[in-house]
């Protein structure tokens, strides 16, 4: 195997270190958000303690949909500009998005069971979210299966754009279809319909998850860069 270019590898190493450092800070912020949610936020009157999942499920959904939207945007820009950094970013964002989706798709049923009486229902919001997860698992599988870097970047960019198209539909499903899933309480045209203490905790959790997204994508970008340098040491 050819040794990767020294300067590029140094940059990859610095990015992974910086990204993992940010991720550790974000995990501490996440722990703080958990303490805030469980100890310093009122229990919701109708749902009781089950509603505390809200402070995990919504930030995870936010991070996952942001991650997949950015994959689509970076993919479209890659097809236009052919800059390999956009492909590396899309790869990193897709993997982190799949991880956040896993959190969203496990906390959702844990919340649904005591409130809806069922773990899962095949309504539009849940089904499309599951399909989005499968699209990006497929995206990662496609990347692993194609060995030529240019072909891999082009093929996966097309799939990344397909995923982006699904994101606004997922947001609008609760308006377009009859569904058990509640309508947005924050991301809607009118003011947030949440008491201040709950909104504050949600904002702290969203900030922690967003910071975690930034840290993980930075680290994953560095990992992708190191792998690319091993594939082709002359790569930009």
């Amino acid at each position: 195997m050819t040794e990767p270019a020294g300067a590029g590898l140094g940059q990859a190493r610095a990015l992974t270190r910086r990204g993992l450092g940010i991720s550790v800070v974000a995990l501490v912020a996440f722990a703080g958000a958990c303490v805030l949610a469980l100890g310093f936020t009122p229990v919701e009157a109708r749902q009781g303690l089950a509603q505390k999942i809200f402070y995990l499920h919504v930030p995870a959904a936010w991070s996952a949909l942001m991650a997949f939207s950015l994959v689509g945007i970076a993919s479209a820009l890659y097809l236009w500009l052919h800059d390999p950094r956009l492909d590396l970013f899309a790869e990193a964002s897709a993997e982190v998005g799949v991880m956040f989706s896993a959190v969203m798709l496990t906390t959702g049923p844990i919340w649904a069971k005591p409130i809806w009486g069922t773990w899962w229902t095949w309504d539009a919001r849940l089904t499309l979210t599951l399909f989005l997860f499968f699209i990006f698992v497929g995206y990662l599988a496609l990347r692993a299966a194609v060995h030529d870097p240019d072909e891999r970047a082009r093929f996966s960019a097309v799939l990344g754009i397909m995923g982006l198209v699904l994101v606004p539909f997922i947001h609008l499903t609760v308006y377009l279809f009859r569904t058990l899933h509640p309508q947005p309480v924050v991301l809607k045209p009118s003011a947030p319909s949440l008491p201040w203490e709950m909104l504050r905790t949600l904002m702290v959790a969203v900030a922690a998850f967003t910071l975690l997204y930034v840290g993980l994508v930075t680290a994953r970008y560095g990992l992708g860069l190191a792998r690319r340098l091993r594939e082709s040491p002359d790569a930009p």
């Binding site: 590898l9 958990c34 303690l49 089950a50 995990l56 991880m99 844990i110 993980l216 560095g222 990992l223």
Partner: peptide, 30 residues
């Protein structure tokens, strides 16, 4: 409710540790 917090923490920690190990291997960092 507790299960949701446990599962989320486990998923996040497993991913971060896995990423750290992969990055260490790929970059030759010690």
């Amino acid at each position: 409710m507790v299960a949701g917090y446990v599962v989320t923490t486990v998923i996040l920690l497993v991913y971060v540790v896995g990423l750290w190990r992969r990055a260490k291997q790929a970059t030759g960092d010690r």
